[in-house]
Design a protein around this nucleic acid. Sequence first.
RNA 1: GGCCCGUUCGUCUAGGGGUUAGGACGCAGGAUUUUCAUUCCUGUAACACGGGUUCGAUUCCCGUACGGGCUACCA
Length: 510
Amino acid sequence: MVQIFYSLIYMSVRVRFAPSPTGALHIGGVRTALYNYLFAKQQGGAFILRIEDTDRTRYVPGAEQYIIETLKWVGLLPDEGVGFGGDKGPYRQSDRKEIYHHYARELVQRGHAYYAFDTPEELALRKQAEENFTYNQQTRGGLSNSLTLSETEVESRLKAGTPFVIRLRVEPGRAIHVQDLIRGEVVFQSGELDDKVLLKADGMPTYHLANIVDDHLMEITHVIRGEEWLPSTAHHVLLYEGFGWTDTMPVFSHLPLILKPVGNGKLSKRDGAKFGMPVFPLEWEGATPEESFSGFRDTGFLPEAAINFLALLGWHPGGEQEIFSLQDLIQAFSIDQISKSGARFDYEKAKWFNQKYIQAANNEVLASYIRPLVNSKGYEATDEYLEQVAALMKERVTFLPDFVETGYYLFEPVREYDKETLQKKWTPPIAEIFNELTGMVATFEPFNGPALEEAVKHFIHEKAVKPGDILPLLRIALAGTMKGPAVFDMAVALGRKETVRRLQALSELG
RNA sequence: GGCCCGUUCGUCUAGGGGUUAGGACGCAGGAUUUUCAUUCCUGUAACACGGGUUCGAUUCCCGUACGGGCUACCA
């Protein structure tokens, strides 16, 4: 006992993120990965990526790569796992088939599991006949399994290759206590539990078996997973008991769900299209447009912003800080401050975080994010110019693509002029002054923001017109719109030649 | 239906037997900026309901309602 206590204290923390490669990884999965990562790093432990691909019918090619790419994008790099090495592998469950067979058989030998020969069709019929039919301690006596069949019959069926599953043998009359770090003690009555399938007829384990065997073999100390696993945790405890692994059973924490922005229920992949927002980390190209999704990355989120947003969806350290770097999060994180109730996906808040992170990012970093967007539009620009664009636009954008979309006029001629303002401001006398101003700008030295501004204002004063008569026109000439960066900063960024060209273009139009 | 979990402003949340129930997003108004945005200030708005326990409950307990999850040879 003393020894167990000792080992629990000094055993280093090991947590796992164990997604199933059935398609694009849901944003809730990213949050689960994040909480696991934060806990591991804070405790000086290991963060492990395990791929749970035991359902061959739901396997989707590319999903595993998607998961890995997501973790890389958000910066949650596993210490061990598929694609990351480690000495407790293999970390892909389909590569561990024999291991599960071995343990499933061992559990049968220990009397905590049994062979069952009932076919899916037979069970489906039973369910049709009896509405609440479950395979459990009440019903198994009347079914076809190694508890009802003679030993020789079982032997011969196994020898003949009759398909079978292995089921957990749950005995009634016990209270199973689960200690959850988020929810406290949760109690289940064993009499209400069914005899879960552990090993399927195709030879693959179910989640229940695989997750216990792997967590044990991989020396996982803490299981941090979604709330949907809470009801089956009682079965998991029974498995630890059955194997005699209770001393090293991991500590459980069941996370609250992420809910739809409006309406009832948990956030689903369809909500992305429905509400016009990403619910996946990365873009995903499915077989059809309906199965293809956009993600946070291609929408133009900074990974740091996505992480900050996700971290606070269901957890809060208690202070009034809102902006947390990954390092801040590692320091501040604690499992007992995770909320118990589900959190609605608040996209407005996500946008706010992104805006904040873009504002705070330095121009060089932003330029590197803008570069691919610029290239894909076919624009040409130097890195130095992109840094200027970043400086000009960073306080006016929400998403990365806004730099080249809202600010397109920093890369190509004005496409469309604000007619309303033009109609109001463009009068023959003003046009004449404007032309004169164009001539001045063409030769004015030095061509920098403050000097230019000073000179133009002086010019306006001399002509006895109001700044409001000229400045808006200048802006429209350069950007076409009444929104945007300071006019003189724009002029300097565009350069003298382009500025003059645009001023002339407006005159010709007028 | 059964089992399990939950419930503080519209949203994310802090708090906790006695508080003007705090912050953030959003929204509204204002200041700054002769654009827009940023920034700053102000405002808006919450303890689901009913019983206990208590001198006192939003906080503790029990119910109810509502919401959610699970109930597959899916994870």
